[in-house]
Design a binder for these strands. Structure first.
Length: 368
RNA sequence: UGGGGUAUCGCCAAGCGGUAAGGCACGGGACUUUGACUCCCGCAUUCGUAGGUUCAAAUCCUGCUACCCCAG
């Protein structure tokens, strides 16, 4: 009987994943990862609660369970990067790294050590086969697809992974959990940075980053207020600026960060031109399988510039680790540090990390 | 301390005798395995202040205070 180790978070998705594998006759082992040791704002350790849920679920399903601790790995491979990016005034997405480095590396290795042939998670994605290669596909539930977070995985990693709920909708998952009597069937979906959880982001960052207050200015230099530190804001952000009234009365948004002068540039109106860009340069390009096309050869595909965004038609070209994109439609608040993920239909090709974006063709951008 | 003007929620701003619009900010919620965006709900028993007129005033009158402008 083939053994499969399931990464269990204590949530509905991974619980149902374990349940399905068990029903399919696999030798299922549930493993809970504790990668962050800190209490939330209320002094409660959510990991303790989640671990309790994992135990309850596994007992219910009738499978053995363990807990592993990758705090060190998480700190070294994910969190340090996360902080470093913020220090540079960028807006990182730690979860894409977490998947590549922790869930589908450290954890995968651990699973193999336990004698498993494969590992499983509750991600809403699917794997497919194309010309003898394993591919990463969007989950069946368009509203829950999580391929955006997994684009950094390589084919080798995917070959060892199974995603039992990938072809289900969230509603189906919940219904199944309920029918099976899983104790977490009604548990609210968790959000926030993986393993760290939901929390007041500003407050959280303050524990790691210095506050370096400065001015908020309009493009033409009018001082609109003060900011507490450029790291604490992201492009396109509206809430938290504290600027009200003035101008045409519309809301204010962050349109730029001037690291040199420590000035947060703000502009009025959700449709402000400074908020949009069609040309994007991304770095650290990574491909699930073979790179799309030849180096330097433009190709058409779809892209998402943030989680849950609808596919955006783009023309792309890659050169080495660099990825250049020209979007057909102007994209709102493409932010340095955030991931750009490419698709061919439902197949996730890979992606990169946005470095710069604008409405004007940037140097080396796709030349038509 | 001559003349004129303005004082309504943190900000902007309706109101012009009939019992406080709206926008922004802010708070809460929804959505969401990043950060954001978005959506929904809430948000002045009170109109610089003290009196007066009136059945009734933020709206009219008077004093005071503050700020602005022009004169000095």
């Amino acid at each position: 009987m083939e053994r499969i180790v399931v990464g269990m978070s204590g949530g509905v998705d991974s619980s149902v994943a374990a349940l399905l594998l068990k029903r399919q006759g696999y030798d299922v082992v549930g493993v809970f990862m504790k990668n962050w040791d800190e209490q939330d704002e209320n002094g409660a350790c959510t990991a303790t609660q989640d671990w309790g849920d994992v135990q309850a679920v596994c007992d219910h399903i009738g499978i053995p369970y363990y807990a592993v601790n990758f705090e060190k790995e998480y700190q070294e491979r994910v969190f340090s990067y996360f902080l470093e990016e913020y220090r540079k005034g960028r807006t990182p997405n730690p979860d894409v790294l977490c998947n590549r480095e922790i869930k589908f590396k450290a954890f995968l290795d651990f699973a193999l050590q336990l004698g498993a042939g494969k590992m499983a998670t509750g991600h809403f994605v699917k794997t497919g086969a194309l010309h003898g290669h394993t591919t990463l596909l969007k989950g069946a539930d368009p509203n829950k697809d999580q391929s955006y977070f997994l684009y950094m995985l390589k084919e080798e990693q995917l070959q060892k992974a199974v995603f039992p709920v990938g072809d289900m909708t969230k509603a189906q998952v919940r219904a199944l959990a309920f029918e099976a009597g899983l104790p977490v069937s009604q548990k609210k979906d968790s959000t926030g940075v993986c393993f760290i959880g939901e929390r007041n982001f500003r407050q959280f960052l303050q524990g790691f980053l210095p506050l370096q207050a400065g001015e908020m200015q309009t493009e033409d230099g009018r001082v609109m207020g003060r900011h507490i530190g450029l790291s604490y804001y992201t492009l396109g952000q509206r809430k938290g600026l504290g600027i009200g009234g003035g101008g045409d009365g519309r809301s204010w948004f962050v349109v730029d960060k001037d690291l040199k002068r420590n000035v947060l540039v703000v502009a009025q109106g959700e449709d402000h031109p400074r908020l949009y860009s069609r040309y994007v340069r991304a770095s650290q390009a990574t491909w699930v399988g073979e790179p799309p096309g030849a180096e330097g050869a433009p190709f058409r595909c779809a892209a998402t510039f943030r989680y849950r965004q609808a596919d955006q038609p783009v023309e792309a070209v890659w050169r080495g680790q660099d990825l250049y994109l020209r979007a057909e439609q102007p994209q709102r608040a493409v932010t340095p540090g955030q991931s750009v993920v490419l698709y061919d239909g439902d197949r996730c090709l890979g992606g990169g990390i946005a470095e710069e974006a604008g409405m004007r063709p940037l140097a080396d951008l796709v030349t038509k």
